[in-house]
Design a protein around this nucleic acid. Structure first.
Length: 307
DNA sequence: CTCCAGGGATGAT
DNA sequence: ATCATCCATGGA
């Protein structure tokens, strides 16, 4: 018997298998909601990396079954590994309380219902920052391709359950490439920004870890000084990389939802006042509200028709 | 202020 | 099959 919040069972004999308790969690919604881009779906399972670790994960009811690539689990105890996995998937977020704290209105109610079990995961900071620099002016399908190309070219190959996965290249690895090499990954003009930011991170001119201690406003200021990072990307990195659950990134989908559902009659409304409304209205867990509205709109919504 | 810079997926015709 | 649209940062 394990005294552990998630870990249910370990079977290290036949394969490296962990079984975690994951109540109120929906793996597919979580990995398919546009917050992370590298997980590959194989039937019901997902293949990917958590940091340097290759992971094969499958949800069966309220359990998560995990295969881990390392033969000896890098000396980690199964309970430590379970903690690591649970931390990544944010299984410790009090989702009931978070959902209850979101505003009650017809729009939010539908999104909250639709996104039951969707959690905001905790991504490695550099990986998150770099990926969202690549995301600007791209759609989800395209970001996935860029992420894959960069991992295949510059990351480390791992094998898990007879599938290849690649870790995300560290900043100094990308800093040692060239704009030309990065462009081969489909980055276009973002290559220059990513390279410049990678260099600043590699040289510790931008110390991503130490920024964890900063309050929201100052963290956002620091992020926005990096090449390729504007308000939207900064908010994504805060939300997905720095656990700033209040951060509310506004992209075209969210802006459309806010305008059409919350202000259908106000034709003249600046983006700035929309952002201010969102920050005030959705409260301390605004990031969850944003993610739920975003995912629901993308899954059910149609693009705006012209005319 | 406006215009533009990759480019593959997606949808309309 | 071809054509237009989607995307959000930064520089001219």
């Amino acid at each position: 018997m394990f005294h552990h919040p998630y870990l249910i069972r370990v079977n290290l004999w036949r394969m490296k298998l962990l079984e975690l308790a994951a109540a109120n969690f929906d793996l597919e919604k979580t990995l398919g909601s546009g917050q992370v881009f590298h997980w590959e779906k194989l039937g019901r399972a997902f293949c990917g990396t958590i940091g340097e670790r290759a992971v094969y994960v499958e949800q069966l009811g309220s359990d998560l079954n995990l295969h881990i690539a390392q033969r000896k689990l890098d000396g980690l105890k199964p309970s430590s590994l379970a903690t690591l996995i649970g931390h990544y998937f944010a299984l410790d977020h009090p989702l009931e309380e978070i959902c209850a704290s979101l505003p009650r209105d017809p729009v939010m109610d539908v999104a909250r219902q639709f996104c039951r079990g969707l959690r905001i995961i905790r991504q490695p900071k550099w990986e998150c920052l770099a990926t969202f620099i690549c995301s600007s002016m791209k759609q989800v399908a395209h970001i996935r391709q860029i992420s894959r190309a960069m991992r295949e070219r510059f990351g480390e190959k791992k094998e898990i359950c007879r599938h290849e996965v690649y870790s995300f290249p560290p900043a100094d690895r990308l800093a040692g490439t060239s704009e030309h090499e990065l462009r081969k990954c489909g980055l276009g003009y973002r290559a220059k920004n990513l390279l410049a930011t990678a260099k600043r991170v590699a040289l510790r001119e931008a110390n991503l870890e130490s920024w964890s201690a900063l309050p929201d406003v100052e963290l956002r200021e620091q992020l926005c000084q990096l090449p390729g990072v504007g308000a939207k990307v900064a908010n994504c990195v805060m939300l997905f990389g720095y656990e700033r659950i209040k951060a509310f990134p506004i992209d075209v989908w969210i802006e459309r939802v806010l305008r059409e559902k919350y202000f259908p009659r106000k034709r003249k409304l600046t983006s700035a006042s929309l952002a201010e409304f969102a920050a005030n209205y959705f409260g301390t867990h605004g990031g969850y509200a944003q993610q739920y509205l975003f995912h629901h709109a993308r899954m059910t919504g149609k693009r705006r028709r012209k005319g």
